[in-house]
């Protein structure tokens, strides 16, 4: 089941990666589509890897922090390797660092949003449990 979901997400990620690559190509590069083809494929593969690996959030035993950190490390290392090895950005290119900063902010927000959302649910559940326990007639009311 997880593999099926990972494959579907990977396909969607590939398309997104290619589209993002085309966007970058149009904005920053003057090379033709034929010359940019390998870069687009690699961009697609990066998108596929990032999207399919989001199934780490479905691993039941993993906490939100562990899943978010794992996904961040995977996305970050792939981005770092791909971008520098393909010469898409240089280390002194501000865009390289801006992308990393945006990634960090997004992942922190993802963790924060999920954490606050579940914390609220758990508080509601404890409240419901407390009310029920205070109103039940027997020690283990049926």
């Amino acid at each position: 089941m997880l593999w099926k979901k990972a494959t579907l997400l990977g396909l969607a990620g590939f398309v997104l990666g290619v589209l993002t690559g085309i966007g970058f190509m149009l904005a920053r590069s003057s090379e033709g589509l034929k010359a940019a083809f390998p870069n687009l494929i690699l961009g697609g593969l990066y998108g596929a890897a990032v999207m399919s690996s989001s199934i780490v959030y479905d691993i039941e035993k993993w906490s939100i922090a562990r899943a978010t950190a794992t996904h961040f490390l995977l996305s970050f290392s792939l981005y770092f390797l791909l971008v520098l090895s393909m010469g898409w950005f240089r280390l002194d290119d501000p865009v390289f660092w801006i992308v990393i900063a945006v990634m960090v902010v997004i992942y922190v927000l993802v963790w924060l949003f999920q954490y606050l959302s579940y914390r609220r649910k758990i508080r509601e559940m404890n409240h419901d449990l407390k009310i029920w326990k205070s109103t039940k007639k027997e020690p283990d009311d049926r």
Partner: peptide
């Protein structure tokens, strides 16, 4: 569910 005492949610995000 009737034997649950309470739920706890840590900073890591485990229920």
């Amino acid at each position: 569910i009737r034997k649950i005492s309470r739920f706890d949610f840590g900073m890591a995000g485990t229920v």
